[in-house]
Design a protein around this nucleic acid. Structure first.
Lengths: 342, 342
DNA sequence: TTGTACGCGTTATCAT
DNA sequence: ATGATAACGCGTACAA
């Protein structure tokens, strides 16, 4: 069994407090002589402080929880969640913190999740894209635990989001300038803030430019390639199919590409497709996917920075929301509208 | 501040032990009447047990650490690490455990990592593909902490690996049967167990079939697409290039495909390429990548199972190593050797 | 300057 | 049979 400060104290015939002070350069000075001998004995006994005991008295665990939108099997498999988690991990590492990942076989009910989060294992929480239907953010906010939200907006919690609207507008501007007038949209589950924002921007663009919108040109996916297939198929099989489709994320775009190939629709000659996120596999699709890039690393850095501030200053940062710019990345899935010479 | 069992006890005029027994269905029976009132007051005060305090006395944290090969920025970005982590998360969730992920800005030196791991924050450890140069496994083994290794072999620690050799042989058998005689190999860093095993199997196959091997036909990559470029280029530019190349993993294969396209070498007509792992993006490459599938989910389940056994029975499982079968997945990057009619 | 008590939950052990 | 208490481990305010 590991040695404790008591063992060291006993060995040297001094008190535990002196040992603690010596080890931590504690709030009270310790004679150099004593300090040396304490460190010596500590090494000798292979002393390692029990971090649980330490955390209990300091109230710090040097750990933050990262909570994906849903705690369920396979959640980490989404490239977006994965990329975000990686970025958070990197950002958190800069501050010397570890990450606690909640896992659960059964979809965990929100209340239990929160109980678990607030029971002392973490100093703070990063919520990734919490669903609008989730009770989690509200429960956390009520208890005043340091928490930052990525890719969603929650009343009373600081958040970092991508500028969805500007991204959608940039993509549609490019397409419009290249002759496209019939736009389709395959969205994501409306419980996601990003999915709502992107759809809203899409509709707004059409209105502002007095462009037509047919019922089949809008479909709801589920942020997966498979979930985009039905909607994309209906869209491309309709009597007057769109010449450009915006996807709510890159996986959805992959599904659209798949359907296009299956139907013999050539991308980008007959159809332009634009994704969202620019997760690594956007470049590996064929044709390489044009997409709207979210600055995930930057978002993670900012979110973690805000969280650290809250944890250290012990009060919620005043700035409530930060919106980071997106960027249109043009690759091979976009081209001028069919029938245009240029 | 949160309520404690003491608050509940005081409120009801009973002892803390009774409260604890009532809350946990503790080792000693509690009158139904009392139990009801305890639960009532607990709810009333929004009592949540301090998990740190609980862990300190039970010695369980219900958390396991997952350690990637190197603790450094971007480590989680590898599709293989990511897929493995996801699988472990799912498997661990089945047992009601959480995951602790160590992060670090600076590459953490092994000793500090181990200190951190062994200081009481976790009940067990899963090492993902530890490097042969790492001190971590040995340090852990010495201290007799529950630990399982995935994708490597460590003396004295139970491990779960893929059957690399059989996979390589299956791929080469198929290629051989389809007329290929000149084989190339772009490997991974030899510090990785899997990289060594795959290269070994490759060499052994050539020997057993008395096939030629030229110097340029073997290159060392770094498990990334970019890292495969130089070797693949040299290989394909050599006077007598191989007709089939095995890659140490899917990303390496992606790099080879890239080089082939750049040099105007048509895959699979002129060149067959086989990857390893079957991470999700193998199917998204163009042409869709033939690859040797590792059963990562299964490996994670087995590894976590062994770890749980160790944690619960408090002694290292006798079975030291488990080797899970790989599977050749044929897609579009493989074809009969050029010049063969069939 | 040194030692002690406190906080936190669980449970063995002592006291009733 | 049930109620009360000490011990576990650490950091640190406070008493001695």
């Amino acid at each position: 069994m590991p040695a404790t400060i008591r063992d060291i104290a006993k060995r040297l015939g001094i008190s535990v407090s002196t040992v603690s002070y010596a080890l931590n350069g504690g709030p009270r000075p310790v004679p150099e002589e004593v300090r040396r001998r304490v460190l010596e004995v500590a090494r000798e006994l292979d002393y390692r402080p029990n971090r649980l005991a330490r955390s209990m008295v300091t109230g710090k665990t040097e750990t933050i929880a990262v909570v994906p939108p849903m705690v369920t099997r396979n959640m980490l498999r989404s490239p977006y969640i994965h990329a975000t988690l990686s970025s958070i991990a990197d950002a958190v590492g800069e501050h010397g913190y570890d990450i606690l990942l909640h896992t659960s076989a059964a979809p965990m009910d929100d209340v239990r999740l929160v109980q678990s989060l607030l029971s002392g294992k973490v100093d703070g929480i990063v919520l990734i894209a919490p669903l609008s239907t989730s009770q989690v953010p509200e429960e956390i906010r009520r208890r005043n635990v340091p928490c930052v939200v990525i890719s969603a907006r929650v009343e009373g919690l600081p958040s970092v989001c991508a500028d969805n609207a500007t991204g959608v507008f940039a993509a549609m501007d490019w397409l419009y300038a290249h002759g496209h007038r019939r736009f389709g949209f395959v969205g994501g589950p409306p419980a996601f803030y990003d999915a709502r924002q992107r759809l809203l921007a899409f509709r707004r663009y059409l209105e502002e430019h007095r462009l037509p919108l047919r019922g089949e040109w809008i479909a709801e996916g589920d942020f997966t390639a498979a979930g985009a297939v039905a909607g994309a198929r209906a869209m491309l099989n309709s009597p007057e199919p769109p010449t450009a489709i915006l996807a709510a994320n890159d996986e959805t775009a992959a599904g659209i590409l798949q359907v296009a190939q299956e139907l013999g629709v050539c991308v980008p000659t007959d159809l332009s497709v634009v994704g969202f996120d620019d997760t690594p596999f956007a470049q590996m699709l064929s044709p390489r996917l044009s997409t709207i890039r979210q600055p995930l690393e930057q978002m993670a850095v900012e979110a973690v920075g805000m969280l650290m501030t809250w944890i250290e200053q012990r009060e919620c940062p005043v700035e409530e929301e930060r919106k980071l710019p997106t960027e249109l990345v043009l690759r091979e899935s976009t081209a001028p509208a069919p029938g245009l010479s240029s």
